[in-house]
Structures are given as C-alpha cells and as structure tokens.
Write a protein that binds this DNA or RNA. Structure first.
Lengths: 217, 217, 217, 217
DNA sequence: AATGAATGAGGATTCATTCAT
DNA sequence: CATGAATGAATCCTCATTCAT
C-alpha cells in the first residue's frame, strides 16, 4: 500500500499544479477572483484546502500562474504564424484574428482576458506582465502587419495604432461580453453566430483600411 | 476640538446622498467594488461609517444607485440628439460617439462602465438594469442610424449589428483600457491624444461602411 | 401659532412619558427587550427617536419605569383587599388570585412579569426592585393568609412557603406561557378557558391544603 | 510560547462540538442569548472566534443544537420509566418529578428551560421543536398518569390538564426562579432545601387530587 | 505528499445615544 | 419641546492561510 501510495503521489506531484490551475481557471472565469474561494479551487481539483499551498504561495500566485500558463503560448503561436508569412497583410490579419477567436475567444481563456481587465488595478504586477507579454506582443504583431500594408500601399496611410484599435476592439469586446453580460440571465442577447458577426465587423475595418476604386458589384 | 466637532456635526440631509454617491463612484472606479470598504466611502464623503446606511440599505444598493444616477441621463441626452436629427447618419454617428467620449469616456464615468463589465456576474439584477437601460438603448440609437444609412444607400448594406459592434467597440475598449491597465504603473502607454486616435479608428469604420468610388486624390 | 404650540407642548409634556411607557410596554412584551428598538418605541408613541431621551436617560431606564409604573398599584390593590378582610383565607386566596388573573394575567402586564423573568439577570437593579416590591409583597400576602389558615386549623399545618409556591405557580406559569410559547405559531395549544383551568388547578391545591373528613364515595 | 502555541493548536474534531455546546450552554444560561458573544463561547471552549463556525452555521444554530442535545434524552428517560411502570400513579408522579429535579432542575439544564421561555418568541422554529419534543411529551406522560389515576378512582375525577398544570408548575417555577431572580445579588431568598419545598408543594397537589377519608394525624 | 482543523484579521451592518437645528 | 441626522462602538460572520497529523 505504501509503495503504491508513494508511486501515486510521485506521479501526482507532477500533475497537481496543472490540475489546480485548470480548476482555478474555470472558477476565476466563472465567478471572478474575489468570489472564488481557495476551498472551491481545491475541491474542483480533487484535493483539499491545504494542497494548493504546497504548490503556490497564495491565492494571488495562483492567479498569476493561471495567466502565465494559459495565454503565453497562444501569443507565441501568433508570432510564429506572422513571421513565417509573406503575402497580403489583410489576409493574415483576418487569419490571425479568427484564429485568436477559435483558440481563445470562444474558449474559457477569453474569460481570463476579461478577468485581467477587471482585476488589473488590484494586481499591478500581474497586470504589467499581462500588458507586456500578451497585449503588447499581440499589438506588435498587428501593428507590423498594418504598417507593412500602409508601406506597401495596400492600406490607406494613417494612424497605425488607431487602425490596430479598430481591428482588435471588436474581438476583445466580444470576448469581454461573453464573460460579463452574456452570463447574466436576461441579457443573453443570443448572438447566433458570433464568429460570423466578428468577421463582418472585421471586414468593415479592413474595407475602411483598403484602397477601393469601385464599390459597385 | 469643538470647532472640528462642530464641523463634523453638520446636518445636510439634502446633499449627503449625492456626496456619498460621488465618493462611492470615485472609490469603486479606483479600487473596484470588493476592495472598496464602506468605511472608505464614508470617510471620502466626510462622514462616518454609519451614515451611508441612513441613505442606502447596503453596499450593493450604493453601487446600484451610483450606476442609476450617473449614467441614465447621458443615454437620454443621446436619444434626444438622435431624434431631433435629420442629416447624414455618418455625421451624427461621429458626433454622438465623440460626445459620449467627452461626457463619459474621458470622465470617471467610464470607470463605471468598466466596473459593470467586471461585476456583471456578481450583480445580475444590476447587470440587467444596465443592459436594458444603457447598453440596449445606446445600441438601439446606433443601430437606427446605421440602418437608415444602409436603407438610404449611404452605407453599404450588410450586417447592421456587426457594424454597430465595429463602431462602438473602439470607444468601449478605450474606456475600459483607461480604467484597467492604464491605471497600472508601467502600463501607461502614453496615448497622447486618445480622442484623436478614437476619431481615426472611427473614421476607418465609417470609411468601410461607406460607398467609395475613388480613393485616389 | 406659537402660543397654541406652546400650550400644546405644555400639555404634551405632561402626557409624553406615559405615552412612551405605554408604547414601550407593548413592544417589550411583544418582542422582548433586545429586539425592541428605541425607534420602535418612539414611533409607537407618535414621536421621534430623540424624544424618549428627553424623559428617560436610557433604554434601560425606560424598562425600569415601565415596570415601576405598571405593576406597583396592582400589588397595592391586593394588599388593601387582604388587609380589610376577615373571613376564610381560602376564599380570599381564591379571590385574590383570580383578581390578579383579571387585572394582570390576561392583560399585557403579564408579559411584563415574563419579561422580568427573562431579563432579571441582565438588569440586577431592576430585578431587585421587582423582587422586593412585587414578588415579596405578593408572596407576603399569600403567606399571611396561608399561615392564618394553618393557625386557625382551616388548613393542614405544614410548610407555608411551599404552599405559597403551589398556590402561585400555576398562575405564574400561565402568565409566562401566554407570553412565550403561546405566541409562537404551531404552539397555540388552545386553552379555551384559561381562567377556568386556573381555577381548577387552584381548587386542587386548596383541597390539598384543607382538612377533609369525607370525600364521599 | 511554542508550548502555548502547541497547546492551542490541537486537532480534536471529535470533541470540539461537544465542548462548544457545553461552553455555550453555560454562557447562554448565565447571560442570556443576546448577551452571549460568539467570542465568549469560543474562548470558554478554548478555541478562537472562527472555530464554532466550523461546526455550527450560526449563533442561532448553536442555541438550537444546545437545546436539542441536552434535553431530549432527559425526556426519553422519563418516557421509559413511565412505560415500564404499573403501580400507583401518585407514586410515579412523585418519582418522575423528583427525578426531573435531580436530572434537570438543579443542574444548568434548568437554565435552558428558562432560556426557552425567554427566547421562544425570538426563535419560533426552535420554540416549536421544544414545545413538541419537550413540553408536549412531558405533559403527555403526566397526563396519562393523572388520567389513569382518575380512571382507577385513585384520583378525584376532574380536569386532567389543570391537574397537570398544578403538578408541573411548582417544579417549572422553581427552575425558572433559580435562573432568574435567584442569580441576582439581593434576591437570593435562600431556599435552604428547594427539593424539600418542591416535595411539599407536590404533596399538597397530590393530596388535593386524592380521595381522602380521614385527615386525622 | 496530503489533509483539514484551527486561526484571526478584516469588513458589513446595527442601533443606542448625541446634539445642531 | 421636539426633531432626526450623525455618530461610532459593538458584533456576527468569512475566508486566506497555517501547521499538527
């Protein structure tokens, strides 16, 4: 029994942190940071109250770890995609935003983005991390693409930062919406196909960004 | 001592509620709902712990009152403006969004919008109120204008809801940004002129929405 | 106006204390001491929160005044009755106990007796007053009658104090009952005629106290 | 310091609830419900403020548990005794009442009975429980005995409920007395032997209840 | 490694009492 | 004389964190 136990524990030791973070992600997203109790997280992870403290120093550290673990690779993905690419910026922009929607926006991770917005003020250090490693890097990708389009003449020259705002905002707001009002009974404005709507909004911005000679069809 | 006492012992029934709500607005916006203690609100309003309870039943009711008091008239303003208007929708859309920026976006009220996003899940009743009385009414104004533009041929026909998303999102995200990351030391990506940037993003969307015959000059 | 006012106030000044004590009696009896708020008393008396403090120093003083005002004369009544009497003790005992029932037991004053029991520990000074002026004087009357019965041979000789206990307890318990369990929904063991039952119990004790030669068979 | 700490940090899940209830019983009886702070209970039980909440949901639940735990078995005892018995009702009545005195009346449990009287109005649910499980069951035992005595001709026929009142009231009032006025300095009418006095009172009632042919001594 | 009993600081709320009007 | 706005001490309860087992 003790050997089996030991073996099991050995194995658990490797996976516990991830299990705890998964549980924490779900609960933070569902109920917010304050309303999530350590005990909830522990139970959701199949352990008891003390266990999270074996792996994380505090509730705050769990939040930090969740953010760190879950979002960084998504950003890295996009950086790789954008580096290996040479073609029309508009096409890649569309591609990347829709990929972000598929990988993050429609998943629980979107809730993490909303959580960061909600809690940024309370966790400055974490906010800085998120700002530098998620926001700035994502915007840098977008900005580079926008700028290259402007430079190549494919896009109308103008304020690149503003263009990035216009491109990203609909996606971000959709993510935030899904984890705020959309969760409230009575506010479920059923957006049948959010992705399609997102695409339409994006298309509008890209159209505004592009030179058009004719608009006839 | 007696002067201080005397100063402390003012009976100002008429103005207390407003003072308390102002104090509450500032603190809720600055620190979030949970992190704001009733005692903080009281002190900021120049009264003591018990006084807020003379006017509001609970901390939650204070939040509700803040939201109710502060945002409704802004929405009503916009409805009036949009009703009395007959001209190019694009012009009014620009006008209204920039007005919202001036009246709300760059003021502490923007923090209230961010707060609603952050706390919607925790205060469903309040969220419904905000959804119905602020969000839906605002979107309705925008949708009407977009639709009339599409009907008149001034705008390219398409998904009106998506167009509303595209138009409003940059404004909303700017407001949210200002009350989340922008408050964190190290994240103050100095946006010298947010209004100008907002205008540029808006211009982009309106351009995408408009028929253009030539883009050259 | 000011003269009328003054006149009215003059008159009020005389009756206010009594009005406040009446209101307090009702509420103390109904809800208990702790659960009765000064504000309740004031409103029930048709005045506002500050007014009771013009006449009484504190909530506790109101309770004391209520007890003092309301019960003393009842006791004095009985003392008079018992002094002016010469006849069979058993008859007077019956008379006095039934009178106490009519004057106190079935009125709200019974609630005051129960209140004293409930709060004696919390208000020792008041308890002492009640003990000396109500309990001891009442028992003294009863004891004198019992003793005279024993001395005259009308009653079986024995422990006079115990006889007093036996005589008074059913009355006291009935009073207490009416202001404790009888007020609770679900416990209203409907005692159709409490006075009749009281009489029967009393009869039993008096029978036990009396010499009986035959009980017929 | 470390020894004190260690002593403070004992894990005794099994015994804590009982310790807390014991402490609570003592304090409730001594000071009343309102005047007893959770912190007092905790300290008296040798734990800290939070610990009672590990075992009981609220102060009210502690009171309920105290009543439930402590009195039910006493009632059950009496039911057993009365069932297994066949003899003169008067004898058993005397026995049971004196047993109740020994088991409850002269112990702190009597304080609980007084507390129930004092707080019945404030805790209707608990009052119903006590009414059904303690009062009614006790009275049922007494009533059965009285009735059987009346049926067998041992007792004078009459109002059985009134007889129960007469039999129980002296005991109840003695219990109540001991936990109200008797606790107040200055009211300690020293009843040298309360049991003896109780017995005398009881004897009186039983005498009144019995057929007597001769009263000679 | 895991448990979960115990801790204790912290915060919302109540209400007797005061005092400027 | 009366008001009722304001006070602030008091108390219940929560929950992140600790540590003996």
């Amino acid at each position: 029994m003790s050997e089996m136990q030991a073996a099991r524990w050995q194995r658990r030791k490797e996976v516990r942190p991830a299990e705890i973070l998964d549980a924490a992600l779900g609960l933070f997203v569902e109920k917010g940071y304050s309303a999530t109790k350590i005990d909830d997280i522990a139970r959701a992870a199949g352990v008891t109250k003390g266990t999270p403290y074996l792996y994380f120093a505090s509730k705050e550290e769990i939040l930090k770890a969740v953010v760190r673990e879950k979002l960084l690779e998504r950003v890295a993905d996009m950086e790789h995609l954008s580096h290996d690419y040479s073609g029309h910026p508009a096409v890649l922009i569309r591609l990347l935003l829709l990929k972000w929607w598929d990988d993050v926006g429609r998943t629980p991770l979107a809730g993490l983005c909303k959580l960061m917005v909600a809690e940024a003020v309370n966790f400055p250090e974490l906010a800085r991390f998120y700002h530098d490693e998620v926001i700035m890097r994502s915007r840098a990708i977008a900005r580079r693409l926008v700028q290259s389009g402007m430079d190549s003449g494919e896009f109308v020259a103008g304020d690149a930062e503003a263009a990035v705002d216009a491109l990203l905002s609909p996606l971000l707001m959709t993510m935030i919406w899904r984890h705020s009002f959309a969760c409230v009974a009575g506010c479920e404005t059923d957006r049948e196909d959010p992705k399609k709507r997102l695409e339409a909004a994006l298309q509008l911005v890209l159209a505004g960004l592009s030179h058009k000679t004719t608009s006839t069809s």
